[in-house]
Design a protein around this nucleic acid. Structure first.
Lengths: 125, 125
DNA sequence: TTGACATAATACCAAAAGGTATCATATATG
DNA sequence: CATATATGATACCTTTTGGTATTATGTCAA
């Protein structure tokens, strides 16, 4: 009957803290932008060249990414440089990590796969 | 000019494979439902009691969660049991894990924090 | 100063999302 | 069988979203 999520041991704030990030991540174009920015900082012009939509549309996506703290923007002369802020993903990753325990109590193949991938990444391959 | 994401080393499929999951995760009510189902399997009726929206609305959320493969449903008599499918989160987690490398080349505080949390979870505390 | 360039902002539009109310269907059970 | 229960499906409504086109602003450079 009542929105009693707040009475759960999952403090509602967990849900809401990650909202900006999850919202930003829900659009494939925005995820594409994040991947682009992971390679190098870019102006809007640079980003726009990679998508078949107008600069205005790209700008809206960048705004939403910025609201979600997934990127930052700093001005340099007449250019504005968009920069990936990987730490902004933390709230979403934290939320998802809660479910690690259900991917198994006793280490499933999935959990091991994820861990191996992380290990491989760390080891540089 | 052209949507050249597909020419990137991030094969477009990565973006699209996780779309169902990211879409499902973008709504706070749906994330709340996932948390509920992490405690126990539930019928729609059960789930609905925890939210201040109609059953029809909850049903729509469950449909989207099912499309994203984040839950499964199986019929038992006149009831339909909704069950968390934690493995469905893998595509989203995989996508996010790509960014681990930017949370650091040399192990930042964030990466360590995430790893410690995982370790703690595994050790049961 | 005067263009060109880089970006921001605004108005507008169609489609998708999140809801409700209502109706339909299937299954327990007296 | 008849009825209550559990759920599904559909039509409809409002708001949000993703997009375009157009206009405004700020900065570099001759």
């Amino acid at each position: 009957m009542i929105n009693d999520i707040s009475t759960d041991r999952f403090s509602n704030s967990n849900l809401m803290q990650s909202q900006g990030a999850f919202r930003a991540l829900s659009d494939p174009t925005r995820r594409g932008i994040l991947m682009l920015l992971s390679e190098q900082d870019m102006t809007i012009g640079d980003v726009s060249e990679h998508f078949d939509i107008t600069r205005a549309a790209v700008k809206k996506h960048l705004n939403i990414l910025e609201e979600g703290a997934l990127i930052s923007v700093h001005t340099s002369g007449r250019e504005r440089i968009n920069k990936l802020e990987p730490l902004g993903l933390k709230s979403a990753v934290d939320w998802l990590n809660y479910f690690n325990q259900f991917w198994d109590e006793k280490l499933t193949a999935l959990q091991q796969a994820v861990e191996n991938e992380q290990k491989n990444q760390k080891e540089g391959k």
